[in-house]
């Protein structure tokens, strides 16, 4: 039987996706190519038409030590692309510190186009060495939702930030309309987790994580993500103050019989979850992008929290379809 998936092509670990807005107003794949160990899948009959959907996978479900993946994505004017994964991106061990497993993602987003990258987290195994570089070049009216998160490893095997090194770099650039002008860097977020202790007084990598089992960064930019960004900033501003005393009487604490509005109810429930699952987060407006950082003791706590925030606000499913949220549900 012929494979239902587009034919694989190009050099080792290279991949290319071009998304274009089709005449009937839906986003379609104009180019779709990949080479081992990279694997891309797109549904033949997409469940939704708000955005094109591509799964970024790897053969065997993970990247072996020294694997190199270079994926370049071009989203043309007005088109929308959702990127997802099917399970954690596993990073297998490297024979030595010098053998770096690397993924590079270059995404170019044209005017009024948008990309939503909400993958499962990266799961680096013990003794792995990994570097991930994701560069997004956005036209002025382009939009981006980017989630990058990494876990402590295989907890079932007792792994707890047991890898050799993990480096993640995310860059968001704005591309000038004028060809002659230079691109401008808006955000460069780099996380370097290195097991090498530069000084004996420094804690081990695991201890320096302070009980956090997953850390994540969410970056939002552009007109389609404006509301979502404001939502995160507003929810952050509305967090209860740490160390505040509750001066209300016992009766007041029990609450009145009048039910809270749905938004308030949702918030109260979310805050209870944050407290219970020991999830910490912060949000900031950095040069026209909203950058959200979070950390939680378990992957599930992180997933539930991100999913709840994105679903509650609604912009992601409105602009990309519910399919874009599948990895954070």
């Amino acid at each position: 039987m012929e494979s239902p998936f587009p034919k694989s092509s190009s050099a080792d670990g290279e991949g290319r996706i071009v998304v274009r807005l089709l005449p009937q107003g839906i986003s379609g794949l104009e180019a779709f190519a990949y080479q081992y160990p990279l694997k891309l899948i797109t549904p033949m009959r997409p469940p939704e038409t708000k955005s094109a959907l591509v799964f970024i996978l790897s053969y065997g479900g993970g990247l072996v030590g020294g694997d190199q993946v270079n994926l370049s994505i071009d989203v043309k004017t007005g088109a929308k692309l959702s990127l997802a994964t099917q399970g954690h991106t596993k990073i297998f061990k490297s024979p030595s510190r010098e053998v770096v497993t690397r993924q590079t993602l270059l995404v170019s987003i044209a005017p009024n186009a948008a990309v939503c990258l909400l993958p499962d987290p990266v799961q680096p195994f013990e003794a792995s060495v990994y570097e991930q570089i994701q560069i997004f070049k956005l036209a002025r009216s382009a939009s981006l939702c980017l989630l990058d998160w990494v876990t402590q490893g295989r907890t079932a095997r007792g792994e707890n930030w047991s890898f050799v090194k993990w480096v993640g770099r995310n860059e968001v650039w704005t591309v000038a309309d004028d060809q002659a002008a230079q691109d401008r860097l808006l955000v460069r977020d780099v996380v370097i987790l290195d097991s090498k202790q530069a000084h004996p007084q420094l804690p081990t990598l695991c201890d320096s994580m302070h009980g956090v089992g997953v850390i994540g960064t969410l970056v939002l930019r552009g007109p389609l993500m404006k509301k979502l960004g404001e939502f995160f900033l507003a929810e952050f501003a509305a967090l209860p103050r740490l160390g505040a005393r509750d001066w209300r009487s016992e009766d007041m604490k029990k609450g009145s019989d009048i039910p809270l509005p749905p938004q308030e109810q949702w918030r109260a429930e979310r805050l209870r979850m944050e407290k219970e699952s020991k999830l910490l987060w912060s949000a900031a407006n950095v040069r026209g992008c909203v950058v959200v950082k979070f950390g939680a003791p378990t992957v599930e706590a992180g997933r539930v929290w991100v999913g709840s925030m994105l679903a509650q606000e609604g912009s992601i499913s409105q602009h990309f379809g519910a399919q874009a949220l599948m990895c954070v549900r």
Partner: peptide
């Protein structure tokens, strides 16, 4: 390549 070594 400068970046955060202590995410918390």
């Amino acid at each position: 390549e400068a970046g955060q070594s202590v995410p918390v």
